[in-house]
């Protein structure tokens, strides 16, 4: 008895056999995928920040600004990637409890999670995370606030450029603003399963 694999592939071959010719693969210039809002220039942070705001994301340009934002909302308990913490620690007053190990048994205890982004896309306001750069997937997803720490030089201008640098990480995720839905009567609600506030923190 043939395997399902062989049956399917045989059916595919039979279905295609009568075609007199096959449609060719068109070549196309990646610049065609660039939208009118894709920026150019050396410093892409301002353009990225503007596009991030356009998708209701929150760019912050310094650790102090981040702490002010979290403090104002009363979000004092969170997680931080241990590799990032030494650089950020000084900005956080003692009123904050920041853990550097994430406990999945207490996902709802963390009001914010700070992890590293490996890049960002200015055209779309997108943060790029991957498995090797993110200490824990859950810390970047479960807390109400996700803070992605980004280096200026890792921002790429457009989506097509970001595709070219996906690299060999088994899991790359592009995050474009807070988690959202419009399932109920088309009304936009943010923070469905993921963060309700998506922050990009510039590391300089």
């Amino acid at each position: 008895m043939s395997s399902s694999r062989d049956i399917i592939l045989e059916r595919v071959r039979e279905a295609l056999a009568p075609l007199p010719k096959r449609a060719p693969l068109p070549e196309w210039d990646l610049s065609r995928a660039r939208s009118a809002v894709a920026p150019a220039g050396a410093d892409l942070w301002p353009a990225f920040a503007a596009r991030l705001r356009a998708v209701n994301g929150t760019p912050v340009a310094s650790p102090d600004e981040l702490v002010a934002l979290l403090g104002a909302k009363g979000w004092h308990h969170g997680y931080c990637d241990p590799a990032l913490w030494p650089a950020l620690k000084a900005a956080f007053p003692a009123t904050f409890t920041v853990e550097t190990a994430f406990d999945r048994e207490r996902v709802d205890d963390y009001q914010f999670g700070i992890t590293s982004a490996v890049g960002a896309i200015a055209e779309t306001g997108t943060i790029v995370l991957n498995d090797r750069g993110t200490t824990t997937r859950l810390a970047a997803l479960a807390p109400w606030v996700h803070v992605a720490a980004i280096r200026r030089e890792n921002i790429v201008p457009d989506l097509a450029s970001a595709l070219a640098v996906l690299g060999d990480d088994p899991n790359v995720i592009w995050v474009t603003g807070p988690s959202k839905t419009a399932d109920v009567e088309g009304i936009l609600i943010e923070g469905v399963h993921g963060p309700g506030l998506q922050v990009a923190l510039l590391l300089d």
């Binding site: 998708v55 779309t124 997937r137 996906l166 990480d169 088994p170 474009t176 988690s179």
Partner: peptide
């Protein structure tokens, strides 16, 4: 939307 919020590229089990 210009881009869907979460776009995942998965080529295998986790790192």
């Amino acid at each position: 939307q210009q881009l869907t919020v979460y776009t995942e590229f998965i080529s295998g089990p986790k790192a």
